[in-house]
Simulated scan of single mutants.
Amino acid sequence: MRARRTTAALAALAAAALGAAGCGVTGAEDDSILGKDTLTIGVSPDQPGLGQLTGSTREGFDIDVAREVAKRLGVDASSLRFKNVTSASREEMLERGEVDLVVATYSITPERKTRVAFAGPYYVAHQDILVRGETTDIRNVRNLAGKRLCEVPGSVSFPRVTKEKGIAAVSAQASGYSDCLAKLQAGQLDAVSTDDLILAGLAAQALKSGGRPLKIVNSPFTDEPYGIGVRKDDTDGCEAVNKAITTMYQDGTAPKLLNKWFRLSRLDVVTTVPQFEGCD
């Protein structure tokens, strides 16, 4: 009798183990963005022209790209949720599952690819410099030596100047790029250096608000491929986002959005689909 009970107990444990394994597989599948009825997308709340939250309204190029990608993944607009991210929080929020995707001027870098996957890029921007209109002694990145340069935690822009280019700029800390804009206009720093699309949005915001006129130096010194962040193991989801980006360029949607948001900045935007970097 005891032997039969032992055999039955072992069988029950084996069945439970198989059931747990089965649940684990289902959970892994559920981690993919594919087939989801709802999506939560991380976006910036403070980047004029790209991702800006005013009251309950979100607008900008990245917001429109996020909506288009979600639509092409089969997610209805009413089932799309946005969540604020910062330059410093994007990887953590993807890893914790707080967001399904990140569309937030998220430059693809080797360091970031160790933690998350990237679809795209959906656009390749270039790092440039924004200064006050009366500034004449900052014409390129070398002129930032000794200047007060805005630094946003988690952004790669400041290290690109100081570490990659070896320019001894002085850090002027800010909470985000809208804070950089306010401090630049107030004379609390000398320059903001980041992606030209961000700078174009900041300059346009300054013009709309009637603040001190700003200008882009137009001396780009890096390529900044904007990717859509996806959880590291969701290769199928990443490839589906790549397909969505491709069709956005093929049917003219992406060029229309670039024209909508950056025409007035006089930036020479590129309207052909960028070379994808792969979902590894």
Rank of each mutant, 00 (worst) to 15 (best):
S32Y: 05
G146W: 03
A88T: 01
T271P: 03
E277S: 15
A9D: 07
D137T: 08
I138C: 01
A3W: 14
Q185A: 11
A244E: 06
L80G: 00
E92I: 09
A20H: 10
V75K: 00
Q47E: 09
A20W: 14
E239K: 11
V124S: 08
D137A: 01
D64Y: 02
I245C: 04
S89M: 04
V270S: 11
D137N: 06
E95I: 08
A125K: 07
R139A: 13
K36M: 09
A28L: 15
G146H: 05
V103G: 07
Y106P: 03
G176L: 09
I108E: 00
A172V: 12
G229N: 02
F118Q: 05
G133T: 10
G120L: 01
A119V: 08
D30T: 06
S89C: 05
N84T: 12
V131L: 12
L18D: 08
A145H: 05
K183D: 08
L39V: 10
C180E: 01
N259W: 13
G74A: 00
A12Q: 10
R4C: 13
V131N: 12
V25H: 07
I108D: 02
K165N: 12
D179S: 06
F118Y: 15
T57A: 13
E134C: 01
E68A: 04
C238R: 03
L39F: 10
A119Y: 07
E92C: 07
V241L: 04
I228T: 03
F61S: 00
P159F: 05
C279G: 07
D128Y: 06
L101G: 07
Y123S: 04
G211L: 11
L267V: 12
T114F: 15
P225D: 02
Q127I: 15
A3S: 13
V116N: 05
L50M: 08
A88F: 03
D234H: 09
G49M: 07
L18F: 15
L94Y: 09
S32P: 06
L257C: 04
D64T: 06
T253N: 13
A77E: 10
G166Y: 08
G35Y: 14
A14C: 12
D268G: 11
G210V: 02
V156I: 12
L257H: 00
V124W: 07
D233H: 11
H126Y: 12
M248S: 04
